[in-house]
C-alpha cells in the first residue's frame, strides 16, 4: 500500500514584489526581478509549486571600502574603485540584481552620481542601502530616490526610526522599500503596518528580518524567518512579504571570514573558510525562507545559484 504523504494546505500566500522597471514600464532596466508568491514552506514543491525561486544580489559600495576583507579586495580588484565597473563585474559574476551600499562619507551628490553610474553600467534591477544612520540615510536616499524616479529601485534601510521619510519618497518616486526590524516577528509586523498605513501597497515592501552570520546569532534570524513565513501562510497579511537577507554583510564581518592571521589552526584554509561562512549562512537562510540573498563574493554567488537551481524542480 503506498504511503500517503501528508500535505499542508495553507490559506495564505506570500505577496509578490517586483524590482526594476523596463523601458515599457517607465524605467531603463533590461530585466526585472520578481520574488514571493509562495503558497507553501520553502521548496515544498510537492504541495504547491513556487512561482519565484530565491534570487541572489551582489553588494557593491559607492566608494572603495577600506574595512572589507582582503579576500574581497583581491577578487574585485580595481573594480572596487568605481561603482560602474564594479556593477558590470557583479553582473558578469551572475548577480540577479545589485545592491549599492552608500557610505557615511557620501553626500547626496555623490550618492546620486554612484546610483546613476550603476544604473547606466548594468541593466539589472537595483536596491540602494543607506549607511544605516537615520539622518544620513534620509538625506542620501531621498536624493537617490528622486534621481532614480521610475526605475523601481529598492530603498533601504527603512526602519521604525525613519520609515516616514523613506516611504514618502518611495511613494512619490515609484520605488520599493526594504523594511528592517531587529529579529522579532512582532516588530516586523508592526513596521509593515506603519508602512502600509502610509499608503504604500504591500507589493512594494520587502522585509528584512535581520539575521546574524553563522556562529553569530544566525539561529535567531533563522527561526524568526520560519515563524514569519509560517504566519504568512496561515494568512497573517502583515507578514506576507518576501524576505531579503544581508548575508554577505553579516558573514564577512565575522572574524572567520574577515581575517586570515592570528586565528586557530583548526579553522583551516582562510579563503575556503570565508566562502563556507558566506555560503553556509546563505544556505541555512534559503531553507528558512529567504527570497533575496545579498552576497559579496563571486564564488559564493556561483555556489548559491547552483544550490537554488537544484532546489527547484527541473
Amino acid at each position: 500500500m503506498p504511503i500517503e504523504i501528508p500535505k499542508d494546505k495553507w490559506p495564505g500566500s506570500v505577496q509578490t514584489v517586483t524590482l526594476g522597471a523596463t523601458a515599457a514600464e517607465g524605467g531603463t532596466r533590461t530585466k526585472t526581478v520578481t520574488v514571493g508568491g509562495q503558497t507553501s514552506m520553502p521548496f515544498m514543491h510537492f504541495e504547491a509549486p513556487a512561482p519565484h525561486p530565491p534570487v541572489v544580489a551582489i553588494e557593491i559600495k559607492s566608494k572603495r571600502p577600506e574595512d572589507w576583507s582582503p579576500l574581497l579586495a583581491e577578487t574585485w580588484g580595481e573594480a572596487m574603485d568605481a561603482p560602474a565597473k564594479w556593477a558590470a563585474k557583479a553582473q558578469e559574476a551572475g548577480a540577479d540584481l545589485l545592491v549599492l551600499a552608500l557610505t557615511l562619507n557620501d553626500t547626496p551628490e555623490s550618492a546620486v552620481a554612484a546610483t546613476k553610474a550603476v544604473l547606466s553600467a548594468s541593466g539589472l534591477p537595483l536596491i540602494v542601502f543607506g549607511p544605516g544612520q537615520v539622518e544620513k540615510d534620509n538625506e542620501l536616499l531621498v536624493a537617490v530616490a528622486e534621481a532614480a524616479k521610475g526605475e523601481k529601485i529598492g530603498l533601504g534601510i527603512c526602519e521604525d526610526k525613519n520609515y516616514r521619510t523613506i516611504v514618502a519618497t518611495a511613494l512619490a518616486n515609484g520605488h520599493v522599500v526594504t523594511a528592517r526590524a531587529p529579529m522579532d516577528v512582532n516588530l516586523s509586523k508592526q513596521l509593515n503596518i506603519l508602512i502600509t498605513d502610509m499608503g504604500l501597497p504591500l507589493d512594494r515592501i520587502l522585509m528584512d528580518p535581520t539575521t546574524g552570520a553563522l556562529g553569530y546569532g544566525m539561529e535567531y534570524g533563522y527561526s524568526v524567518m520560519e515563524r514569519l513565513r509560517l504566519a504568512a501562510l496561515q494568512g497573517d497579511r502583515m507578514t506576507q512579504l518576501p524576505m531579503i537577507v544581508t548575508v554577505g554583510f553579516e558573514a564577512w564581518k565575522a572574524k572567520e571570514a574577515k581575517v586570515g592571521e592570528g586565528v586557530p589552526a583548526a579553522w583551516g584554509d582562510w579563503k575556503r573558510r570565508a566562502i563556507h561562512w558566506e555560503t553556509i549562512t546563505a544556505m541555512a537562510l534559503i531553507e528558512s525562507g529567504a527570497d533575496i540573498l545579498v552576497l559579496r563574493h563571486p564564488e559564493s554567488v556561483a555556489l548559491i545559484k547552483a544550490a537554488i537551481a537544484e532546489l527547484i524542480p527541473a
Binding site: 539561529e219 572567520e256 579553522w267 541555512a284
Partner: peptide, 23 residues
Amino acid sequence: FSPELLYALLVLRENIYTDPQKP
C-alpha cells in the same frame, strides 16, 4: 576531511540545535 569545512558545519550544528527557549 577539511578543517575549515568541519568548523563551519560544527558551528552550524551548534546553532541549529541550540534550544531556542534558552538562549
